[in-house]
Amino acid sequence: MKIIKLNGKDTALLEPGLLAVLDRAGISASQRGMAIAVNRKVVRRGEWAKIELAAGDEVEVVQPLSGG
């Protein structure tokens, strides 16, 4: 089975599309303030639908939270 890291967690890569991975993880791609990096490079929102992941990729999905 192909495995990626999604926010630090080993995650099965059942379909290569980034949006499909987000969907399976229960992450809504339409929410405001979300940003994504794949292998430590930021992927602009407009590019998300074109991104295909491969085994070993590291995906970071972040949002703003409270802080000082």
């Binding site: 630090g8 929410q31 940003a35 970071e60 972040v62 949002q63 939270l65």
Partner: peptide
């Protein structure tokens, strides 16, 4: 504001 990983378990904050 801080920037943090989205919680995969849900409970999204709408800050």
């Amino acid at each position: 504001v801080s920037i943090r990983r989205i919680d995969l378990a849900g409970g999204l904050e709408s800050l």
